Simulated assay, not measured.
Amino acid sequence: MRTQPLLDIRRVYVEPEAARLPRGQEILARFPEAELVEVGSHHRIPELYGDETNVNRWVRIKTEALVLGVKKSLTARPNDRSADFIAPSTANGCAMACAYCYVPRRKGYSNPITVFANIDQILGYVRRHAGRQGVKPAPNQADPRDWIYDIGENSDCSLDATISENVRDLVRLFRDLSNAKASFATKYVNRDLLDWDPRGRTRVRFSLMPTADSKLLDIRTSPIAERLAAIDDFVAAGYEVHVNLSPVVVRDGWLESWAELLDQLDAALGPRAKAQLAAEVIFLTHNDRLHEVNLGWHPKAEEVLWRPELQQAKRSQTGGWNVRYRTGQKGRYVAALTELIAARLPYCRVRYAF
């Protein structure tokens, strides 16, 4: 149970250009009592990023700070797993504090929500990009018919929607595209989305893990039971709903815990949800720098995340070390879980597992 609100915005770091745009003005009007701090760049704010002393204020910064900027580089990067393309983001960072999240190790010791105000430019780019793709030539693991655009790679769109209309604008955009669908993963149940009429053109991927793991690792997120209870409602509201079974954390009794979760998922779903269900299975990847950060604010999480006896290291592009379960052992873990899914949820297609 949360003891404080996810967001209590007291300070907004704002680029002047963002403040002049209509969306920027709308966002600022939502927080009239907040202190405004003018910044030259949304990704260069010393008191937020790169200061290791911020680990002591990890959750407080996420709760009280908001950054408002302009997205300069608009690209749709190819993706070969969850989506066909990663759409240009309308936000990054998060007010939640999952202990395994990769974003902090990119942005520094804090990653409050950054919202981009130039939504009209982003919408125009995505519309033109989808138009250039034409008809999808063949089915793939992302989707059998449509081009899939992940609109929430670096943030949680359900939570972003409490701050601005950016996500709703994207859902409206994809509702009218005949060859493309939006997709985003979420750990936050925002029932306001049920009124958006997506008409099957937005895929919501509810992230799930065993309840005990979630209580330890999914800090400040919606409880697993609440996510399970939302699936049927989102399907009824016109969303395509998949599940992200991630991250899978190997610990004593892990497979038994996942069996219990799969049974809970099966019991929560009605016929419509089961008929369209698919899953992604992603085993934990951790990082030495994030490990050090977590030791400063949530060391209990590292007892299950940092397991050198089970993991192997690989140098990351940023110079740190990423760790994942050892080759050979991981293959057996993946096989065990996918076999369990086939047995407990025979109607659920596993889109990919790694």
Rank of each mutant, 00 (worst) to 15 (best):
M1G: 15
R2I: 10
T3W: 05
D8P: 05
R10N: 12
R11M: 10
P16M: 00
G24M: 06
Q25V: 04
E26T: 02
E26W: 05
E33A: 07
L36P: 15
L36T: 10
V39M: 14
G40A: 12
R44P: 10
P46S: 14
E47H: 15
Y49P: 11
G50N: 14
R60Y: 13
I61A: 09
L66R: 07
L68T: 03
S73Y: 09
T75H: 14
R77W: 06
R81E: 05
A87Q: 07
M96L: 02
Y102Q: 07
R106Y: 11
K107I: 11
N111I: 08
F116T: 12
F116S: 09
N118H: 10
I122Q: 09
Q133H: 09
A138L: 12
A138Y: 14
Q141T: 06
A142C: 14
W147K: 00
W147E: 01
Y149G: 03
I151P: 15
I151G: 13
N154W: 09
N154D: 15
D160H: 15
A161I: 04
N166F: 13
R168K: 10
R168I: 05
L170I: 12
L170Y: 07
R172E: 04
R172N: 06
R175W: 09
L177S: 07
K181I: 12
F184W: 10
T186M: 03
Y188H: 11
D192L: 12
L193K: 04
L194M: 12
W196F: 10
D197S: 06
D197V: 12
T202E: 01
V204I: 15
R205Y: 00
R205K: 07
I224Y: 03
L228T: 03
A229K: 01
I231K: 00
V235D: 00
A236N: 08
E240N: 12
P247K: 10
V248W: 13
E256M: 07
A259S: 09
E260M: 04
E260F: 08
E260A: 11
Q264S: 08
D266M: 02
L269Q: 01
R272G: 09
R272I: 03
A273G: 02
A273I: 00
N287M: 11
R289H: 08
R289D: 04
V293P: 02
G296Y: 10
E303W: 10
Q311Y: 01
K314H: 01
R315W: 03
N322G: 07
R326I: 01
Q329C: 11
G331E: 03
Y333M: 07
A336E: 11
L337H: 01
T338Y: 06
Y347I: 00
R349L: 06
R349P: 07
R349S: 05
F354C: 03
F354Y: 13
F354N: 02
